[in-house]
Design a protein around this nucleic acid. Structure first.
Lengths: 241, 241
DNA sequence: AACCTTAAATGGTAGAACCAATAAGTCAAC
DNA sequence: GTTGACTTATTGGTTCTACCATTTAAGGTT
């Protein structure tokens, strides 16, 4: 018998998925948009002829996906958002911890993406971007105690976010956070190497950025990332032993 | 009063979020891994002293995130997966339809990422990759009727997936699907421009890839994307009028 | 005017019951 | 021995009811 008869495994759509699809369809058709509020759980359950629990599962799915925001109390309810980046970051983190993505592949992709972001940032960064980056570096210098490691991590993530913002491209910001924020998980687990001065490296980097020197900026960032990656890979090995 | 006192908005964690965190913590600690099965909803609800609905919302969240797979019936239950790329693709699509991401930014990021992927693919693609790409092009040539537009779309997505696979980097595959698959939504909405021969362009592209000619391959792909991009922007404008 | 009380609406949780699908076991027919 | 129908136990999917916690508005009190 031929194996190309086109049979596909049956997929019985669950009720809450149908609700999700209907809501997404309304959004894509433009009948509801960001800022609008959906009917309450009880009301929508009645309209769709399903139980409130089913509507809740659909709302939960869309809330986790960054499509809805749920607020309690009268005047609360489900409001449509503009979308969110967190689901992407979370998924990358899950892929890393579940073994669906190796640390080596992840870091290489991070390098590739950084390169393009630096290229765009060199073209388009404004004075506001430069001063924001320098303010971030200055704040990092002040957080130099062991107890402030969480603040330093937050500032590091902010540094890359500011760099991505300099590209004036929202998609690049999204991709940057997707490949940067999962680092926070690793930093919390394995700690950070404090044997070199990241502030000095970043200061030089921003100087190259100001001079619109793409190659020098990429070189400086690559050197920084090589150190970090070597450290992370060594810590990963020691952690598994 | 200083605004740097470190006050943060209180966020009362919901019960199902606590359940999610506990499961993710178990995964990250290595106590449960991909392939393992979690207790049933009823059993876990009893262990955690919460209602079954709460466990369900947690399972639902992790299922949507690609962490769990839920199966009915005896011997069913919640099994831990290796992670999934779908949440990322879905989020990008949502961002596009909700206005959190412009089509212009999206396509520019797509171009940047393609460049890096082509660069890596030129270095690492094997004979198997080339023949897979060529088989895909051959299949595309056969699907040339209007009725087969869905098949053509699927083959287009597969073409880019195969190209990403040639990088031998799973993270690049993930990013590729994240910026490519949302196109399917647009294609379904606005249709495709069939005034030029995509198969011919892709054939040339693979030839350059075979010769490891990075610049020529990038140029060919860029030209293709410029045409597509111009077409999509024109259709988007006409759709909003 | 400032403060407190009350009420109403809404999401969050609990618990029970039942439906639907799945897999394994049992048994009769061939 | 194999096939197929039937039974049974387990589990996710759904419904329903009830109640809790939070938020906002309205009204009343000082």
């Amino acid at each position: 018998m031929s194996s190309s008869m086109g049979f596909r495994p049956v997929k019985t759509k669950r009720a809450f998925e149908e609700v999700c699809d209907q809501i997404r369809a309304e959004i894509q058709a433009g009948r509801i948009a960001a800022g609008d509020k959906l009917p309450s759980e009880r009301e929508l359950a009645e309209q769709l002829q399903v139980s409130r629990a089913t509507v809740r599962e659909a709302f939960r799915t869309l809330e986790i996906g960054g499509v809805l925001s749920l607020q309690k109390g009268v005047k609360g309810g489900a409001m449509v958002m503009h979308g969110d980046v967190k689901p992407i970051t979370q998924t990358i983190s899950d892929l890393l911890s579940l073994g669906g993505l190796s640390l080596a592949d992840y870091t290489e992709a991070r390098k590739c993406l950084q390169k393009e972001i630096i290229r765009l940032a060199c073209e388009r960064a404004t004075e506001e971007d430069f001063s924001a980056l320098e303010a971030n570096i200055a704040a990092t210098r002040e957080k130099n105690t062991e107890a402030q490691i969480e603040d330093r991590t937050a500032l590091t993530l902010q540094f890359y976010a500011l760099l991505a913002r300099a590209t004036k491209n929202k998609a690049m910001e999204i991709l940057m956070s997707a490949v940067t924020e999962p680092l926070a998980y690793y930093i919390k687990q394995i700690g950070v190497d404090r044997s070199w001065d990241v502030a000095a490296s970043r200061t030089k980097f921003v100087q190259y950025l100001r001079k619109r020197d793409v190659d020098a900026a990429i070189a400086e960032m690559s050197a920084h990332m090589e150190r970090l990656h070597a450290y992370m890979l060594s810590r990963e090995l020691s952690a598994t032993h």
